[in-house]
Amino acid sequence: MSANEMFLVDDDLFFRVASDVLIKRGIPELDIVQFENGLEAYQALVERVENLESLPKLLFLDLNMPIMSGWEFLEELKGVSSTICEQIQIYIVSSSIAPEDVNLFETYDFVNGYISKPLNLQDLEKVNETLSLIGDV
């Protein structure tokens, strides 16, 4: 149904490089597309919304980013298309453990989870489980 792709949205180059290696180990069947901020990722999604097949299965979203932060990205997404929200498994992956951030994420019902950095293989295994569940349906 969707492309075998995942979006990795984070302004931190080091994190993207490290995650790239880690995700390839944890969820090897996904191709990773990297974005430096919310706006780039948002524009890519809007381009693909015409063709649902081309939407990614998974999206890892950082919160603190220049130009368009993770929250701003979620707000834009909320306003645009419920299809995108339903189609994609979205996880916030942030270094923030501030209660405001953790609480705020719960107000977006289309966000599947909050992963606190550093990302590890256990996190990816859990994500993979939900992905395969949906894949079975």
């Binding site: 994190f15 995650s19 880690l22 950095k117 550093p118």
Partner: peptide, 9 residues
């Protein structure tokens, strides 16, 4: 945390 988590990863 972003730096320390990078180091850790």
């Amino acid at each position: 945390r972003s730096n320390s988590s990078n180091i850790s990863m």
